[in-house]
């Protein structure tokens, strides 16, 4: 039997315009840009936004790419998610994510951080990335101290 070939896209939502300046240090920047996103942003809304972006930029032909699209995971607290898509259509979906400017009236940058053939690798990468962020803001040391106590 031939397997169904699919790709998993790991994406992060970055909020570029917080109310106050955040450039002071790397830590402030991470905390401001990676803040949890609105509870109203749901996987359903994201699929809808991707489809609108595809329709606007690539027309009906582009919209046909989104037929097998599904969001496998989305977390509001970390603003990360995983999309599953057929292998041939990956580029169009990433381009659509790049073209998205606003979600529910808020300016966002959607950054696609990994593309993989298996969902396991995407999960690993997501864990690795958030661990790296925690190292950058020194949170990891705090956790280790707690364990020792």
């Amino acid at each position: 039997m031939v397997r169904l070939k699919s790709r998993y896209i790991l994406f992060e939502i970055i909020h570029p315009e917080p109310p106050e300046p955040f450039y002071g240090s790397r830590k402030d920047a991470i905390l401001a840009l990676h803040r949890p996103c609105d509870a109203k942003i749901t996987p359903k809304l994201l699929v809808q936004e991707i489809k609108t972006a595809l329709q606007n930029n690539f027309g009906d032909y582009g919209l046909s790419m989104a037929v097998s699209l599904s969001i496998k995971y989305f977390s509001n607290r970390t603003s990360t998610g995983i999309i599953r898509i057929h292998r041939e259509n990956v580029r169009y979906i990433i381009a659509a994510l790049t073209f998205i400017r606003q979600l529910r009236g808020q300016d966002v940058i959607i950054k696609c951080s990994a593309v993989s053939g298996s969902i396991k690798k995407c999960e690993d990468r997501a864990i690795e990335l958030s661990r790296q962020l925690m190292v950058d803001i020194n949170l990891l040391e705090l956790f280790e101290d707690d364990d020792e106590k």
Binding site: I94, A95, T98, C112
Partner: peptide, 13 residues
């Protein structure tokens, strides 16, 4: 800042 994008996404485009 809102019109900045990840470089690999732009490359993909």
């Amino acid at each position: 800042a809102k019109s900045l994008r990840n470089y690999s996404d732009v490359a993909n485009m």
